[in-house]
């Protein structure tokens, strides 16, 4: 009965948001990985895998439900995925890039968690911000409220990279290019900006892990934290697929007396010179 919090939350997170909740360092990692990110020809297709696992891009734990997945086309309109399938360990789908420019594939959501004690018993509630005020009974002790937003993204480009899909929504943690995510090359430095609820996300912790973990003995993670403008930079050590995860926790929630937690996770392809 005394399981760690993250373990107890995980099934709920999977069911509601389609993602593991990055509450602890032990949380599983969610990812959407495209087979390619830079495409030529007028009408290219890209196939994707989406899963939740410890080993980056190695599906061996849980398929990622595709119910919350959205695709934004270069002109800002919504695009449809095709041939979606969810298997035991991974979901797959295809995307037809009918426009030239950069597409965003995204799964994002937000929720509120409240924890309190009632007559000495620990209680927990999860829902949206509107339901919060009716959730916690009068006389609850040690109330803790967490506003949580998570976002999982990747990007693919037909022809030259474009910026329209990076227009911030102002919700949760979002990535804005200084370097375009589909213009990354081994040995070069890339700079990105993170926004939290539309404002520069200062002091967010960023972790970047190269794919192919299964065939090495260390995580080989690169860590960074954002500056006052929400910016961070890193130099790509080699070509390959990378998993980038950023987290921010502070007390600047729009909900009174709540803490704010936000995560951004992206898959980035780095090409050889």
């Amino acid at each position: 009965m005394k399981k760690p919090v993250a373990t107890r939350l995980l099934p709920v997170a999977l069911a509601m948001a389609g993602l593991a909740l990055p509450l602890t360092a032990q949380a599983h990692r969610a990812w959407i990985v495209p087979a390619a990110t830079a495409l030529s020809s007028d009408n290219p297709w890209v196939t994707f895998d989406a899963a939740i696992s410890n080993d980056i891009f190695h599906p061996d734990y849980h398929a990622m439900p595709l119910t919350h997945l959205t695709v934004t086309a270069p002109d800002g309109s919504a695009a449809e995925i095709q041939n979606a399938h969810t298997g035991k360990y991974r979901s797959t789908f295809d995307l037809n890039l009918t426009q030239r420019g950069t597409y965003k594939v995204s799964s994002a959501g937000s929720f509120v968690i409240a924890m309190w004690e009632e007559n000495g018993e620990r209680k927990r509630w999860r829902g949206d911000a509107d339901g919060l005020k009716d959730a916690i009974p009068a006389g609850a002790d040690n109330v803790r409220i967490i506003e949580s937003a998570r976002r999982l993204e990747t990007y693919v480009t037909a022809g030259a990279p474009t910026l329209e899909v990076f227009t911030p929504t102002g919700k949760g943690l979002e990535l804005v290019p200084v370097t375009h995510p589909n213009d990354l090359f081994a040995g070069e430095e890339a700079t990105f900006q993170l926004l939290i609820d539309g404002e520069p996300a200062a002091a967010a912790e960023v972790e970047v892990i190269p794919g192919g973990m299964r065939y090495r003995n260390q995580q080989d993670e690169i860590t960074a934290s954002t500056d006052k403008q929400g910016r961070f930079s890193l130099t790509w050590p080699a070509a390959g697929m990378y998993w980038l995860s950023a987290e921010l926790q502070d007390d600047k929630s729009s909900i009174p007396n709540a803490s704010r937690r936000a995560s951004y996770t992206g898959t980035f392809e780095v090409l050889p010179q």
Binding site: A36, A38, S40, S41, P44, F185, L271, P272, Q273
Partner: peptide, 13 residues
Amino acid sequence: GEKWLKDMRQWWR
């Protein structure tokens, strides 16, 4: 044939 133009990566970029 245009599908593979990207494989000339440096030129493509």
